[in-house]
Design a binder for these strands. Structure first.
Lengths: 213, 213
DNA sequence: ATAGTTCAGTGATAAAGTCACACAGGAACA
DNA sequence: TGTTCCTGTGTGACTTTATCACTGAACTAT
């Protein structure tokens, strides 16, 4: 493996000590790591898979804030741990994977002893800040039809996406009806073909066709 | 003073070493600390006054992301320093004040040697994350008229606010025309009275009247 | 006073969000 | 093999917000 987890690059002595107190847990897709209002039980460091973090507004509408992948530590949890306040958002496993649950004491010790670990934490924070700033800009200033098309293209590894309009609305932070209408318009333009719970990219949006051509 | 700067609580030896390499600078209101695209020249730690951070979208519209106050370190700068990439946003001094410019080496040393400093940094990051998450929720799900009223009330220390509609539009991440129309409607409802560059709170919005009563 | 600049107001139109409801596709079950 | 139920989708009507294109008002400098 060319890539090591942030825990693997610790000095041997420190690593051994840490690993004794860290539990590694497997998470199936769909598993909720924490919900809004709950209190922090330890810092999840994602080792494999991906987790999406979303929040629900007073209106009851939700929006996906960002995703965590390999070597991301949950910066939200750090904040909750420090302040003792509950989570403001919810974390849901998207691709099954595993995470190391780091207890507070170990976290403090690693921050104290390892420059590499510190760097990893700062990078996680940096990514989160960047993600959120970009999201604010998107939500505030970009048109919904463009955002939808971009989202579809970004996930178009295969030509078919399995998702409901409601879930897609949460991804974009809008209402289900808006997504349904925009998708219908894309279908009229022969860019997608729709069926229950499924979106097939067909026209200019279908990058897999281009790759295969 | 009951409150000490994060630098004051460092152990004496460390503090002396650090202060030798840290420049304290005064900033007048309106002064731009950094602009989008620029590269990081050092980490500003706000000692006094306040700084607003705003970003401009491709469309040319801007939005205020968050504000920094006493003891906030510019988390955006940490990220820029680490990755070597340019700033994505712009920082403007709002209330004149002063900031300590911490060079990279000193920052690394303080992170290594001082748990108190580390805690301060993590708290700054936590606040930023919180601010941005709340902002996303606001922008995505709240109505503009409510957001405008809340903004006005939050700043209504005195009954008069000195701001142009354009500046207010940037605060809320919308267009100047929208602000003008909503304000005009508030004026019809006797909540405010408008004049060039000035908004006077008069009706239910005027908390200073309540306090004085 | 005059010219130039910044601010504010407003109509027309397009995009997006809300509300209310109809209907379609599957799953479960009799 | 229907019938029932649930979830997902489509759509009309209406409101709110964004955009475009102007007009005119208020201040500034000469």
């Amino acid at each position: 493996m060319p890539h090591h987890s942030i825990l693997d690059i610790l000095p041997e002595q420190l690593r051994k000590e840490a690993m004794e107190k860290i539990q590694v847990m497997r998470f199936p897709a769909g598993r909720i790591l924490f919900s809004a209002g709950e209190h922090c039980q330890g810092l999840p460091l994602v080792l494999k898979g991906s987790v999406k973090v979303q929040m629900t507004g007073v209106s009851g509408h939700s929006i996906v804030l960002y995703r965590m992948g390999k070597d991301d530590i949950c910066t939200l949890s750090i904040g909750c741990l420090m302040t003792g306040r509950g989570y403001r958002a919810e974390a849901v496993v998207e691709e099954e994977g595993e995470a190391a649950m780091i207890p507070r004491g170990v976290f403090d010790r690693l921050m104290d002893q390892s420059p590499e670990f510190r760097l990893g934490i700062m990078e996680s924070y940096g990514r989160r800040l960047d993600d959120l700033m970009l999201l604010v800009e998107e939500v505030a200033f970009h048109r919904m039809d463009e955002r939808l098309e971009e989202w579809l293209q970004a996930r178009a590894s295969r030509g078919v996406i399995t998702i409901t309009h409601q879930e897609l609305a949460v991804e974009l932070g809008t209402a289900r009806e808006v997504v349904s209408r925009l998708l219908k318009e894309l279908e009229r333009q022969k860019m997608v073909s729709l069926s229950r719970g499924k979106i097939e990219l067909t026209g200019l949006l279908d990058s897999s066709a281009l790759a295969g051509a």
